[in-house]
Structures are given as structure tokens and as C-alpha cells.
Design a protein around this nucleic acid. Sequence first.
DNA 1: CCTAAATATCGATGAGTGTCAATATCGATG
DNA 2: CATCGATATTGACACTCATCGATATTTAGG
Lengths: 116, 116
Amino acid sequence: MSTLTLLPVIQAAACCAPLTRDPLSQSQADDLAKSLKAIADPARLRLISIIAASEGQEACVCDLTEPLDIGQPTVSHHLKVLTDAGFLSRSKRGTWAYYKLVPGALDSLSRLLVTT
Amino acid sequence: MSTLTLLPVIQAAACCAPLTRDPLSQSQADDLAKSLKAIADPARLRLISIIAASEGQEACVCDLTEPLDIGQPTVSHHLKVLTDAGFLSRSKRGTWAYYKLVPGALDSLSRLLVTT
DNA sequence: CCTAAATATCGATGAGTGTCAATATCGATG
DNA sequence: CATCGATATTGACACTCATCGATATTTAGG
């Protein structure tokens, strides 16, 4: 635990200054855009909302494939995008993979957009 | 004032239920994704932040072309995307076009992402 | 009117991406 | 170890989109 790699969402929020406080630098804008792109997709938003509504804000992939009208590889792809962006964490138990909301990740992003 | 066309951002926020309250329907996810895609771009984020930091949260296009390293047609394109999405409003005074933050638009979006 | 300046639109191009079918990997179980 | 079910990866394809150069549109001034 010597090195700690910050999750992208957290990193984007690290500057902590809301979008509307000061002009964004190019790299700040790049980071924030990357986080926003990760959730700016209907399938990924539905995945997040389903996971968030599940017990412990955690859901098995097997429960995520049916509700959406997309194939299993595509669901797996979207879950990877959300995980790489820091919105979800993955834990495998037996054959099943469980994805969980990273506490505070969405809220960090939310705070960056607020103007007040 | 018989017919009122809601701005896309406001429309996406109309359901008022945060992303993490209940599973999103396909159309709800489409609307929200559309709003998020509008701001999920580095150049557009910088435009928003510059406009927000300007007096009256309003800026002339002539002041937006230089700070970003992109051409004038591209700036115009991004401003149109943000305007169509409901984040900016446009008013022309003389030869100049001024873009202004739509009050509450970013906040509506921000509220949709919050988990608490 | 004619010109010049500011902004918008158009057409093209190259990069990025959501989706799928096929296949690989991983873990449990017999 | 062989098999099977669950999930991930790969490769390909269609589609979207950010950007640019060129051009059109609009407005002010002479």
C-alpha cells in the first residue's frame, strides 16, 4: 500500500474547484471530459442505476445482462469502462463477478458541475 | 406562451429522480446521456468555464476563440451544441454574438448525479 | 450599395466508439 | 483432468463526432 493510484474520477475532482469557478486548463478539461464521457452513454447510465438500486449498491453481471437489450460482451465492455473510470469496483466471488458503486465517485463529479 | 418547449437539460432533469434512486428507463437514459454528452468534451468544458467566469456569466464569441487552440468554426460549432443542449443561451448585439450560461442548467444536471 | 468584420454553415476527413460474433479465460464440479 | 457455465477479450464494422478549410450570412460604416 505504498503507492496509491488515484481513481480517475477522484483525480478529476482533486482540483476541487467547480467547473464554473475559474477557467479550466487544458489538462483539467481533459480529465473532467474523460470522466463525463464514461457515464455519457445510455447503457452505462442504466447499468449504474441498476447497480445503485441493488442491495449494497452491488450487482452480479448475470443480473445486468437481461435488463438491457445488449449482448453479454457489450455489457462486460461497459462495466470495464465504468470501472476504469473509477465509478465501479469489481470483485469476483466464485464464477460470478460483482460490480459495486464506488462510494462518493458520482458525488465528486456532481460537485464539479454545481455553480453555487 | 401557449406552447413551451422545455430545454433538453431541463427535460432530462424533469423526472427529478436522481440517477441512483431507481433503474432508468431506456428513454430516461437516452435523455440524460444526451445532456452529458453535450458537456463531455474538453473544448466545451473550457468554453463553459470561461463563460461562467465572465461578467454576468456571459461572453462574446470574439473572446472565446483565442483562449482555446481551435479554429473559429469549431468554436461556433461547440457553442451551438451547448446551446441546443440547453446549457447556453445566445443573444446577438450588433455584429457580436454573446453566449450566456442558462441559470440552473448545470445544477439540474448535477442534482441528477448525486447519490445522497 | 459596397466593403469589412464577426459569426454561422457546409463538406470532407480522420479519430474515436458502441455493438456484435467468435473465442479465450477462469472457476466450480464431477 | 474434462466439462460446463460465467465472464472477459479480440477483431471487425458501422456510425458518430471533433476539427478544418472554404464559403455563406449578417451587421455596421462609409
